[in-house]
Amino acid sequence: MAYGVIPSGFELKRLPEILADIEADNVATFGPGVIQTAASPLGELNGLHSDLAAALWELALSVYQSLDPDQAEGVRLDQVAKLRLLTRAPGEADIDFRQAITNAGRARIDMNDLSQALSALAGVTWVQTFVNETDTTDVDGIPRQHVAVAIIGGDDDEIAKTIRAYVVPGIGTYGNSTIETTIEGFCRSIKVIRPAEIAVEIEADVLARPDRNGCPPPSALAIASGLADALTGAGRPRNGQAVTEYLIRQAIESRYPNIEVNEVRASIVPTSPGAVPVAIGFFQIMAVSVDRITIAVA
């Protein structure tokens, strides 16, 4: 049987197999009458030799696995990620980081890599990448063959260098903020979107009922807090995304199955809430806080 690196992967030679081979070699050398029981001097030497050899095989397996992002762990996984120009985000678990490295379930490898790298930069709290590969300006105003990065937080120079590592020469960058930086001795102008946060006020009329176990529905304040959580942080709506009934309904009803949204009103502060949708510009992003959310429970 073949051991070590074979076409199907790495075949580990285990202790019983190692010991059996050593004993067979002794028989071939000293004859069939050789005494190598476990309590015999030769048997003890066989056991010591096989233990040492098994430890080396385990080490070889560990080295082999450490080069595979599907098997590497901890610091070794971080080292493998550097080959993809990726850095682990603060608190990111091995399983999530591994998916980012291998692009598991992701079709747009380049843009996901860029988002992953930017998210790992110190101070970055939110990032969204866009690409227009067509020959015309798209509905968001992104010119043809351009990449747009919308980002909140982070150091301008670090952001520019990271973008440059993923956006090849000949592909333009689009945004409302220009970062002048030097990369490998060359001056570069990298455009990014620094979205202006637009405070919005939201009102929602909801119908509440007990859940299947008879537990009472959440309070209006709890619903407002849940909605605020859904519309903030890393998972917040992207820049240019309007305040719509669908957005609010999805955020509330997916979190609270026993709550049904009947009507949604919203506005840009300080205007009083009215009919939705409320448009948000591509260079803007909605800012939501629980004190600007009113939930009327029926």
Rank of each mutant, 00 (worst) to 15 (best):
V5W: 11
V5D: 13
V5I: 15
V5Q: 10
I6C: 11
I6S: 11
P7N: 06
P7L: 05
P7W: 07
S8C: 08
S8H: 12
S8L: 08
G9H: 12
G9T: 04
F10D: 10
F10C: 07
F10I: 14
F10V: 14
F10R: 10
E11F: 09
E11R: 15
E11S: 06
L12T: 15
K13C: 06
K13V: 06
K13I: 02
K13T: 06
L15I: 12
P16N: 14
P16D: 04
E17R: 00
E17G: 08
L19K: 06
L19V: 13
A20Y: 08
A20V: 07
A20G: 11
D21V: 00
I22V: 14
E23F: 03
E23Q: 10
A24I: 00
A24V: 00
D25W: 04
D25Y: 02
N26M: 13
N26R: 05
V27G: 06
V27F: 13
V27H: 00
V27L: 10
A28M: 10
A28Y: 10
F30H: 11
F30L: 09
G31T: 01
P32E: 14
P32W: 08
V34Q: 14
V34E: 12
I35T: 14
I35S: 13
Q36W: 12
Q36K: 12
T37I: 01
T37E: 01
T37S: 03
A39K: 11
A39I: 14
S40N: 09
S40P: 02
S40I: 13
S40K: 07
S40D: 07
S40C: 05
P41Q: 05
P41E: 06
P41W: 11
L42R: 07
L42H: 13
G43A: 09
G43W: 09
L45H: 10
G47Q: 06
G47F: 09
G47C: 08
G47Y: 15
L48N: 13
L48S: 15
L48Y: 12
L48T: 12
H49T: 15
S50E: 05
D51Q: 15
D51P: 00
L52P: 01
L52K: 00
L52I: 10
L52D: 07
A53G: 06
A54L: 04
A54D: 08
A55H: 13
L56R: 05
W57L: 00
E58Y: 01
E58D: 04
L59W: 05
L59Q: 12
A60S: 09
A60L: 02
A60Y: 10
A60H: 03
L61F: 11
L61S: 03
S62E: 04
S62D: 03
S62R: 02
